[in-house]
Computed example of a mutant assay.
Amino acid sequence: MTDRPTTSGAEPGSFEDLLDTLDELDVPDGYRAGTVKGTVVLSPWSKGYYTRVMRLVCGQLEAYLPEGHVIERAPNLFVFPGAERAYGPGVHAADERVFDSDGTHLDGEALSFVTELTSSSTRDGDLTDKVRVYGRARTTKNPAP
């Protein structure tokens, strides 16, 4: 595997098929899977020093979260069916009820905050596609208070 995200060559028939592929994927150690622009993408896990940055972000924002929302660094996969995307942000805040699930695909509409820790290999997707998807998600059915 490389130090850069890699994409699959397979073209699933639907977004649901793509999510099924993610569930069945045997991901190599040190990598995580998500989707970008309709393909499965394997990305290397975060560098150790990102942990400090993520902890600082969480500590600074926790007091400002909407009521009932929690901030996490857990590797959760948030799904955006309307955009046919699924991302696992580095830091995320969401309505705590979204975590009352035994599933691995969490509702992206529950998010109130995301942080993506970018690197040279992920910067393009993090600052374009993900920004558009995250920015539109909450406004579609749950506008912020």
Rank of each mutant, 00 (worst) to 15 (best):
1 M>K: 10
2 T>N: 12
2 T>Q: 11
2 T>F: 08
3 D>V: 10
3 D>Q: 12
4 R>A: 14
8 S>G: 08
9 G>P: 03
11 E>K: 11
11 E>A: 07
13 G>A: 15
14 S>Q: 06
14 S>N: 03
14 S>H: 05
14 S>V: 07
16 E>M: 06
17 D>A: 15
18 L>C: 07
18 L>M: 08
19 L>F: 06
19 L>G: 04
19 L>I: 10
20 D>S: 13
22 L>S: 02
23 D>R: 14
24 E>G: 13
24 E>T: 14
25 L>P: 03
26 D>E: 14
27 V>D: 03
28 P>T: 11
28 P>K: 09
32 R>K: 15
32 R>W: 14
32 R>V: 13
34 G>M: 14
35 T>P: 03
36 V>Q: 12
36 V>M: 08
39 T>Y: 05
39 T>R: 15
42 L>N: 05
45 W>T: 15
49 Y>R: 15
52 R>I: 11
53 V>W: 02
54 M>G: 11
54 M>D: 08
54 M>S: 13
55 R>D: 14
57 V>H: 00
57 V>L: 12
60 Q>V: 10
61 L>H: 00
62 E>N: 10
62 E>L: 12
62 E>P: 03
63 A>I: 10
65 L>M: 04
67 E>C: 02
67 E>P: 05
69 H>E: 06
69 H>F: 12
70 V>Y: 01
73 R>P: 02
75 P>Y: 06
75 P>M: 08
77 L>N: 05
81 P>N: 01
83 A>Y: 05
83 A>F: 11
85 R>Q: 15
86 A>K: 04
87 Y>F: 15
88 G>V: 04
88 G>K: 04
90 G>D: 15
92 H>Q: 09
93 A>I: 04
97 R>I: 05
98 V>W: 00
100 D>K: 11
101 S>K: 02
102 D>M: 08
105 H>M: 05
106 L>I: 08
108 G>F: 02
108 G>E: 01
110 A>G: 02
111 L>F: 06
111 L>I: 10
112 S>Y: 06
113 F>W: 07
119 S>T: 12
120 S>W: 09
120 S>M: 08
121 S>L: 05
121 S>A: 15
122 T>W: 00
123 R>P: 02
123 R>K: 12
124 D>L: 14
125 G>Y: 13
127 L>H: 03
128 T>K: 02
129 D>T: 15
129 D>F: 10
130 K>T: 06
130 K>H: 02
130 K>C: 07
132 R>F: 13
133 V>Q: 00
133 V>K: 00
136 R>D: 13
140 T>E: 13
141 K>F: 09
141 K>A: 14
142 N>P: 03
144 A>G: 09
145 P>C: 07
145 P>A: 01
